[in-house]
Structure formats: structure tokens, C-alpha cells
Write a protein that binds this DNA or RNA. Structure first.
Lengths: 253, 253
DNA sequence: CGGTTGCGTTTCACTATCCGGAACATTGAT
DNA sequence: ATCAATGTTCCGGATAGTGAAACGCAACCG
């Protein structure tokens, strides 16, 4: 009823929330029918019908063979974000080169609202993971970005997002995190030692613009069996080269 | 008032339309302030304010330094479309390889609602063009797709979208289009001879799944000066190789 | 320093419009 | 032909979105 609650619940336009509830439903499972969306969103059938009519009319949703799909028009909107900075686009190419040269999975990650978000990725055909959000403290790329922040901002991150445990190796203690970030700052790269998922390791370095603004993190990851001590050096030097190339590209086109 | 008009105007939820009007405004120009969005959308200020509050609350829009930006959460939704089919993801890699090997711009295009839509692209750092929509009849890749359709569907396309002229070379006559599509079918590839933009040429081939379903079109394009008769053969054979590789990837993982 | 301009924010009364139950139409299967 | 399940339409009602206007806050400036 009244505007504000404990947190801040129902600001603004609930109609818009319904629309996006439907889009999110289609994200997780494409080709749904109206009734299936009804079940998943717990919205009345006629409401879903009306919203879908609007969305298809605008082209953001496509109906084909009785099922509904996210339209490519949304792609045009969101792709904007991946090219917001020239450095992002330059990073895309480097991610690809890294993947080809090392035959491992590679990624470029930026931070948004204290999440590590995949902007570019090279890897398995099944799932590109682009747009997926991960907890920063449990990823090599996330730690690289955290290491560039001052203590206050890191403290705020810890407070707001917490240091959730994902494996037995996850850093869950703020002091341990501070130590780790110090180490990252000193050595100039971060390592993920099965901290997010068992058996999954990674290495990442920061990417800077010519005027030393942080763009994001460039990383490689793969199974623990292949990410042993002795390959770290090679991976790190490759990553540094690519990060440097991005910087140069930005400076001299 | 009554449900339908001449075309079909205001179906469904006008609130949702307002939300997307705001998102579209941010797409074309990021970092806008509330008043700037007000001007561009011609919506009252308080309405824009309320919608933006909702969108930022949901994370689809981000506020930074007084300006509003599209959030990366939208990326997660739309990226789904680029990986709807495994072939799409496989094509991404091939587009990249093509670009690297030929040092020209390359693309993978699919059709949606009679538009040619860029799904993957390799080229300039400035603009990736992903998600952009182009008229099918004036693109090599578009013609490749049209050539796979039966006459009825092509006729429907012509009726619905028209054959708009973009340059002096654009095919604007339905019969000429039919002839051209015959040629494309025979030779198995299409050429864009400055039909969309003066000085811009292209070559494209169709991409099929192992069970001969059309996935989209794979193409190369660049300045007319480099796309002369004698290089067509080389480009076409390269494109055919890559299209074949996609097919094989789909068949044998 | 007042005054002014321009912006984001909030208020508030109004009613447009979104809602959703329920009836209806359509399809497909048995 | 019957039935079940789905998509579509209808319609009264009140929710909730609307937008003009007022407010608060900076920055700018005379």
C-alpha cells in the first residue's frame, strides 16, 4: 500500500514487471505456449495473452508454430551494451584469438552492480554464457576487478553481496579476501583454484585503457587437470599480451 | 476504441509500449538523462521517471553519473536468440575464421519477419551491427535465403515488404528478382553488386543443417574495389568450405 | 549573495486502462 | 460425434498508471 517497505518492493509500474516476467520465462525455455507461460508466471491466461499480443506486435517476441520465442529485435537493444566502449569490441577479438591459440575456454568479463558479467566468450558450442552473472569473489576475473578497487568499495561489495560459499575453496572470509586481493595486485593476475566449481580453474588479468581506466578482465579457464602450476606462467603471459594489444588498439586505432 | 483499425494499431498494453519506447531511446543514445528521454519519447517527465525507476529496480537499466544506460541483464535474455540453434553458435566461430583468413568483413545472417538480421559479424571495431535489420532483396545473404523459398513465399515477401530502391543497382522489379533468385539457385551463391549501398559488394552462400534445413547465410563483404570478378571464386569456395564445416559440426559434434 | 534556471523527485486526483474471471471459439484426438 | 485442452474474446470493476503541477535541490549568474 504505502510507497516503501522494509527493502523497497513494488516501485513503479507493475505492468512492466509482468511483461518482463513473461520475457524471462521465454528466456529460460523457448517455444512455450500461452498456457505454459501462464503456469510459469502465475499470471492469468488473458493477461499473458494480452502482453504477448503487445510484444509480438512490437516484434520483441515471435510466434512460430504455436510457440513463442524471443525476437531478434531485443538483440539490437542489448547488443548496444557490448559495444558501449571500443575496448569491449576489441576484447571480443582477443577472446577469440586466445581461445584458438590455447584451445581452452576464454572470456572477457566486466562488472555491473557488483556482479561479474560475461561479455565475450570462446568455448563450447552448447552454451556461450554471454550475459551470465557470477559472484565476483569466486572467479579469477572477478578477483582481478576487485583488486583494482579501494578498500571501501570492496567492503561495500562484501556487505551487499556477501561471500557465498560455492566450493570448499571459496574465499568466504573478508580478511582472507583482502589478502588475496593484495596478492593479485602484486602479481598482476588472479587465479581461480576451484573456488566456484569443483574441478574448474582459471586465470585472469585486468584490461586497461590507454589512460589506465579499468575496462574488465580477460581470462582463461578449464579443468583443473590442465590448469596446473607450470602452465600458469604461459597463460598469464599470453593474457598479458592480449590485454596489452587491446590497450594499443585503443591508443592507435 | 474498437479493437481493429485499418492496419492494427493499439493492441494490448500501452504501458509496455511506453517502457520499450524508453529502452529504444536508450538504445540509440546511451547515457541520456530523464529530461532528454522525455523529449525524445514525448512522454511526460513523471511517466518516464516512474518507468525508469521500475527498469533500474529490475536491473534492465542502469543509472550512472546521472545518465541512464541499458543494463547487461537484457543481454542475458537476448543472447538466448543467438544460441537458439547449435548451428548459430557454430556459425559464430566460422564467421570469425573467415574474417581472419580473408581480412574482409564477414557475417552470418538469418531471416526474421522478412528481414535479414545479422546474428554474427566480424569486422570493424566501431560497429558490430549485430541485431541490425536489412532488406533481404538488396543483400547477398538475403538473396541466398530468398532463393531457398518457393514462389508463393517470395511473392508474399515482395507484397509485404516491397522492393525498395537503395542504389541504382537495387533489384526493384519482381520478375528481375525471380530471375536473380533462379541464378542464385543454379550457382549456389549470391552476389551483392552495390545493391544496398554504393561501393559496397558482397558474396554469400546458404548454410544447411545435416538434414537440409536452412539455417541462414554466411557471407563476406567489402569495398567494390576488392570484390572484383576474379576474387569471387576464391571467396565462394571459402564460404562453401565453412558452410560445410558447420554442417559437419552439427552432424558429428 | 538573492534570483533564476534546469533538473530530478514527489504529490495527488482522475480516469484510462489494465485486469482477470468466465464465456466462447477452435483445434485435435479418441 | 464427443471431449479435452488450448487460444481468443468479452466485459464490468477497481486498480494502478497517468500527467499536470508543485517541490526541493544544485548550479549558474548577474
Amino acid at each position: 500500500m504505502t510507497a516503501e517497505r522494509d527493502g523497497e518492493a513494488d516501485t513503479g509500474v507493475s505492468t512492466t514487471r509482468k511483461t518482463f516476467a513473461i520475457l524471462e520465462a521465454l528466456k529460460s525455455e523457448e517455444g512455450l505456449t500461452i498456457t505454459e507461460i501462464t503456469e510459469r508466471t502465475e499470471l492469468p491466461k488473458s493477461t499473458v495473452y494480452r502482453h504477448l499480443a503487445t510484444l509480438t506486435d512490437m516484434g520483441y517476441v515471435i510466434e512460430r508454430e504455436g510457440g513463442y520465442y524471443i525476437g531478434l529485435r531485443l538483440l539490437e537493444i542489448s547488443e548496444q551494451t557490448r559495444n558501449r566502449k571500443t575496448g569491449y569490441t576489441a576484447a571480443k577479438r582477443k577472446v577469440f584469438e586466445l581461445g584458438q591459440e590455447t584451445d581452452e575456454r576464454s572470456l572477457f568479463v566486466v562488472e555491473e552492480e557488483y556482479d561479474a558479467v560475461y561479455l565475450h566468450r570462446y568455448g563450447s558450442l552448447a552454451d556461450t554464457m554471454i550475459g551470465k552473472r557470477r559472484p565476483m569473489h569466486s572467479l579469477a576475473s572477478g578477483k582481478v576487478i576487485l583488486a583494482e578497487w579501494d578498500d571501501d568499495r570492496v567492503a561495500d561489495f562484501v556487505e551487499r553481496k556477501g561471500l557465498g560459499r560455492h566450493t570448499s575453496n571459496t574465499i568466504t572470509d573478508p580478511d582472507a579476501l583482502a589478502e588475496e586481493l593484495d596478492r593479485v595486485r602484486k602479481q598482476g593476475y588472479a587465479i581461480n583454484d576451484e573456488e566456484y566449481m569443483d574441478g574448474l580453474c582459471g586465470v585472469a588479468v585486468p584490461v586497461h585503457t590507454p589512460d589506465d581506466e579499468l575496462l574488465g578482465a580477460l581470462g582463461l579457464f578449464g579443468p583443473a587437470s590442465r590448469f596446473t602450476e607450470d602452465v600458469h606462467e604461459e597463460f598469464v603471459s599470453r593474457l598479458r599480451d592480449k590485454a596489452g594489444e587491446i590497450r594499443v588498439t585503443l591508443a592507435y586505432g
